[in-house]
């Protein structure tokens, strides 16, 4: 008997990415730099989040030509972003054979009420979360991987830290609850009861959880690993820095050896200017990507 697209196959793919860095790329050349630096996967998109922020307007799925070009350039897995709730963008990416779809708040949502029913697809999905409620709802819809949202395109780690701490604190709280407290907790969080029961039983989320949204330096990446991330997404941080090759390698090394401070010091030397950051309080509420998703 042969089964494709099972939970085990979809979640397992994310398990293989653990301890690694997934990098945003906008063309084949960047994809090769990322692969060469040791990225475990690349995210093919039309603009990195900081440019999406600058450009304004509606951000959509990338031109399939870009995705295809990246898929042909590297042998590591290729991910691509679809708008929240955009069934057709997701199906198009699936038909092209991308390895993972990010139903992403970085793009302008197509549906302000519903996310995709990700169980319907053979391709696995990664989704953003800021707390256990969001995490459990996305798992309930069939996400095979999570990433904390942070605030994409800012080069400011503060939101990524807040979300990782929040999710992990709530998981710990849940694990220490007695079973009769879980239903009310599910009601308070707006989370599916069965998913919470499973998390309580296993003592951790049933899928891999990476950190995203604001990682700009090797030390930022190592910080997220110390806070319990299974790996790191780096969006604008790499190709908006002065020396992408060196920067990409440094981030990979710091992620692998997130507790080796001498090594992090060594790889951080002479990297040149990191991307210019944005203070979160200067971002207008309607421009905060993390608030997208329901």
């Amino acid at each position: 008997m042969v089964n494709v697209g099972t939970d085990r196959v979809k979640r397992g793919m994310a398990e293989m990415q653990k301890g690694g860095v997934i990098m945003d790329v906008v063309n084949a050349e960047q994809a090769k730099i990322a692969e060469e630096a040791g990225a475990v996967a690349v995210m093919a998109l039309e603009r990195v989040p900081s440019d999406i922020r600058k450009a304004g307007g509606v951000a959509r799925m990338a031109d399939p030509t870009i995705v295809e070009e990246v898929m042909n350039a590297v042998s590591i897995p290729v991910m691509a972003k679809a708008r929240i709730g955009h069934i057709v963008e997701a199906r198009v990416l699936e038909s092209m054979g991308v390895d993972y779809i990010d139903e992403s708040e970085v793009l302008t949502p197509a549906d302000e009420v519903f996310h995709l029913n990700k169980k319907d697809y053979t391709v696995p999905f990664v989704c953003g979360c800021r707390n256990l409620g969001e995490a459990a709802r996305r798992i309930g819809e069939g996400a095979s991987m999570l990433r904390t949202k942070g605030e994409p395109g800012t080069g400011n780690i503060v939101e990524a830290v807040r979300h990782m701490r929040q999710v992990n604190a709530e998981v710990r709280q849940l694990v220490n609850m007695s079973v009769d407290e879980v239903m009310t907790y599910a009601k308070d969080l707006g989370a599916p009861y069965e998913v919470l029961l499973q998390i309580r039983e296993e003592g951790r989320l049933p899928v891999v959880n990476f950190a995203a949204g604001g990682v700009a330096t090797p030390a930022d990446a190592a910080l997220m690993m110390q806070l319990g991330a299974d790996g790191v997404f780096v969006g604008s941080g790499i190709f908006k820095s002065d020396n992408p090759e060196k920067f990409a390698k440094a981030i990979v090394e710091a992620t692998t050896h997130f507790e080796d401070y001498e090594l992090i010091a060594k790889v951080s030397k002479g990297l040149g200017e990191a991307m210019k950051g944005i203070e979160i309080s200067t971002i207008q509420p309607h421009e905060r990507m993390q608030d997208r998703g329901w």
Partner: peptide, 27 residues
Amino acid sequence: FGRQKDSFEATLAIDGVADDYNAVFIR
């Protein structure tokens, strides 16, 4: 075996180990 969408589970016989082993193939 192809890209991620072709990843699969299948039952295998493994010489000296098992004749009904559920094997998970990912890329």
